[in-house]
């Protein structure tokens, strides 16, 4: 009995193990294609997403490029308006002094870029107005920008711009002639700073330029004046 009983459970055990093995194999076989399918799906979807993102990115970059220009312009306008509105006339002049100092520091860049801009502005003015454009010496938009910087709330008519354009031309001609007269008196061929400064100091109508174009003084003379003032004070 015992001998007959013993082989039966062994067989059963082996059968159970076989069944479990087959089940495991089946599960593995079933899982692998699922994972493969999933992988393929995962692989496909990000591709499409990438494509979508690529398609989406290009117009975004274009938009950004387009947006950058007005942003820069806005920044320029903001930077131009803020200090001027805050400051009074004296402050404006101080700011102008600082700007003049900066200008003197960087002459080369300003010369080059201004020339390029001149060409553009000239073409625009000439095309727009024809013969009348040639009459105006300075670009009208530039003058308008300068006036806006002075007082942003104020509006300027076309007549006023033309009047200022002509006034500046006459001012420049007269100032140059008077400076050249001093240049000739000194018997020099090249018109320089000293001649302009001399004109400013001699005539009263140019007093508003005395802060910008003071006459040169030697250090010794300046020190003497200081010492004289000091002794006077004491």
């Amino acid at each position: 009995m015992t001998s007959s009983n013993s082989p039966k459970p062994e067989k059963k055990i082996t059968k159970n193990t076989e069944i479990s093995k087959t089940q495991k194999k089946k599960t593995k076989n079933a899982e692998t294609p699922k994972t493969e399918k999933k992988k393929t799906k995962n692989a496909e979807t990000p591709k499409t997403e990438k494509k979508k993102t690529k398609n989406a990115e290009t117009p975004k970059t274009e938009k950004k490029k387009n947006a950058e220009i007005p942003k820069i312009e806005k920044k320029k306008t903001k930077s131009a308006e803020i200090p001027l509105t805050d400051g009074k006339t004296k402050r404006d002049r101080e700011i102008a002094k600082e700007e003049n100092k900066k200008k003197t520091k960087k002459p080369k860049l300003s010369n080059g870029t201004s020339k390029q801009r001149d060409e553009g502005s000239k073409k625009g003015v000439a095309e727009g107005k024809g013969e009348e454009g040639k009459m105006n010496v300075f670009p009208m938009n530039r003058i308008r920008t300068m006036i806006k910087g002075e007082d942003p709330d104020m509006r300027v008519s076309q007549e006023a711009l033309l009047a200022i354009n002509n006034a500046v031309e006459k001012f420049l001609e007269q100032f140059s002639q008077e400076a050249y007269a001093f240049c000739v008196r000194d018997r020099k061929k090249c018109l320089s700073y000293d001649h302009l400064a001399h004109v400013v100091s001699k005539q009263r109508r140019y007093d508003f330029l005395s802060d910008f174009v003071p006459e040169r003084v030697k250090a010794e003379d300046a020190l003497r004046e200081r010492s004289a003032a000091g002794t006077g004070g004491h």
Binding site: T104, I164, V168, F175, Y193, F208
Partner: peptide, 21 residues
């Protein structure tokens, strides 16, 4: 001179501000 041109440029700019103000 180059310096003379730059100084004149600044004078002209100041003239516009002066009159416009």
């Amino acid at each position: 001179s180059k310096e003379g041109k730059q100084v004149m440029q600044e004078c002209v700019t100041e003239f516009i501000s002066f009159v416009t103000g």
